[in-house]
Nucleic acid binder design. Structure first.
Length: 424
RNA sequence: GGAGGAGUGCCCGAGUGGCUAAAGGGGGCGGACUGUAAAUCCGCUGGCUAUGCCUACGUUGGUUCGAAUCCAACCUCCUCCA
């Protein structure tokens, strides 16, 4: 039996290792399987840690940023991060969102997604030889045959124990169906951990708090093989108003610039609620705590300065310093209404104008509405401005006369969503 | 295998023949107020080449002038029994 240390009984724990000190001070720790032993292990020298992600899309989103930041810090302190992608597990679908079975992804699609994820992560930390690595669980999961798998691992899991995990129990109590596939998913994740230990001497898994059960399974499985493994979970990030973070009006907040422009990404962070600013600065930037402490003293309108710093820092880490600066300048220009000479946020072919594109169509093209009807409602709700002028006519056509110097027009929906469209 | 119950829009949930694109709430978006914050109040929240048309109440058929609502079969889930 393991005694799992959680945040509750670790309040007075004083870590000796730099890594744990830092992670705890900055607010990364939610639960840990054995804080003291992990601390001791970290004092012995560099360790290898991993965090796993499904390959369901070709980019990660802000919800994934927390484990990535934790790994980034570990690498800065000479530890080795492994980015594990679920090339194998993705093929059977992620069961934790079980509203409906998702379409199975084919190998080519998964391959494409893996590359996208790698590109995203590589901006946060180094995956090259000797510094870190990327691993794909298809490399071992694909090899198993069912009977062999049962014989090797099935004996180490008891249904009794698996039933005690929150993820399982809550489902049963809510009388929601729980398929065998889902039930077994935690075994696969446990096997991943042990395999990574076998192959790369990985001893730590970092994941979201909802992963606790799965992570503990891996730690237990490791112990049966005589290895001490550690699990570390991160707090579930909700905004100060209590909702899950990571969505904007235009959809998920993706980390890759191809999916969400640096401008959109920067704006997401700029719109952080007052109550979240300090917490986010600690978790999502590299700023020293002393500096953050100084920003924490700002109040009222001045807090907006802290938000700008937050936005610029995070964008700089995820998209690069150049992109961050450009995004900030774009924002300032668009919000002040003085956007001469600013980089456009969107580009559309000039040919569109010759066929007389409608305003509604333009709103949809830019992504501010998902359909013409939705765009129409926005216009009717008097929230659409073209070149700074409120437009109430939903039949309004965009013509060359609307173009200002530099072949561009500005379009805003509401007070926050603004676009500078360049026609070329 | 037997008996009973359930499947509604992004989510929860009302609705048992026409007044139902479907009450109410949540979430989201927009407006007012602000600081690109929070709180509060108000509005919107299926789609379209739009005074109309199409799609939608698990699936497929049927009854009816007319169905989310009635009938049949099927699928899925839940509860109890074996």
């Amino acid at each position: 039996m393991t005694i799992h240390t959680t945040i509750d009984n670790s309040r007075n724990f004083r870590p000796k290792s730099e890594a744990l000190q830092l992670l705890i001070e900055r607010g990364f720790l939610h639960q840990c399987t054995d804080l003291e032993a992990l601390d001791a292990r970290l004092m012995e020298g560099p360790i290898t840690a991993y965090a796993g992600f499904d390959a369901t899309a070709d980019s990660l989103h802000v919800g994934h940023l927390l484990p990535l930041m934790a790994m980034r810090w570990l690498q800065k302190l000479d530890h080795k991060p492994i980015l594990l992608v679920g090339g194998g597990t993705t093929r059977i679908g992620d069961p934790s969102f079980r509203s409906e079975s998702r379409p199975m992804l084919d190998d080519a699609q998964i391959e494409h997604n893996l590359n996208g994820i790698r590109a995203t992560v590589e901006r946060l930390f180094d995956l090259s030889e000797g510094e870190g690595r990327m691993a794909n669980n298809a490399d071992w999961l694909d090899e198993f045959r069912f009977l062999e798998f049962l014989r090797e691992f099935g004996t180490h899991f008891t249904v009794n124990r698996m039933m005690t995990f929150d993820s399982v129990r809550s489902r049963l109590e809510a009388q929601q169906p729980l398929s065998v596939l889902e039930f077994c998913y935690m075994m696969l994740q446990a096997v991943d951990f042990v395999e990574l230990n076998k192959r790369f001497d990985c001893v730590l898994q970092i994941g979201g708090s909802d992963q606790w059960g799965n992570i503990v399974n891996g730690v237990d499985l490791g112990r049966r093989a005589g290895k001490q493994l550690f699990g570390f979970t991160l707090p579930l990030l909700t905004t100060a108003s209590g909702s899950k973070m990571g969505k904007t009006a235009d959809g998920a907040v993706w980390l890759s610039p191809e999916r969400l422009s640096s401008f959109g990404f920067w704006q997401f962070w700029r719109n952080t609620a007052d109550g979240d600013v300090v917490r986010f600065l600690k978790l999502f930037t590299d700023l020293p705590l002393a500096e953050i402490g100084r920003l924490a003293k700002l109040e009222g309108q001045e807090l907006n300065e802290a938000k700008k710093i937050l936005a610029t820092q995070v964008t700089s880490i995820v998209h690069g310093p150049e992109a961050a600066r450009a995004a900030m300048e774009q924002g300032e220009a668009l919000f002040s209404g003085n956007d001469e000479g600013t980089e456009p946020t969107h580009e559309l072919p000039l040919a569109l104008l010759s066929t007389r594109i409608g305003l509604l169509e333009l709103i949809v093209k830019i992504g501010f509405a998902g359909s013409n009807s939705e765009a129409r409602r926005l216009v009717q709700g008097s929230s659409v401005k073209l070149n700074g002028t409120l437009i109430l006519d939903e039949k309004r056509q965009i013509s060359e006369g609307d173009i200002r110097t530099g072949d561009r027009i500005s379009l805003s929906v509401g007070r926050k969503r603004k676009a500078l469209v360049q026609f070329k």
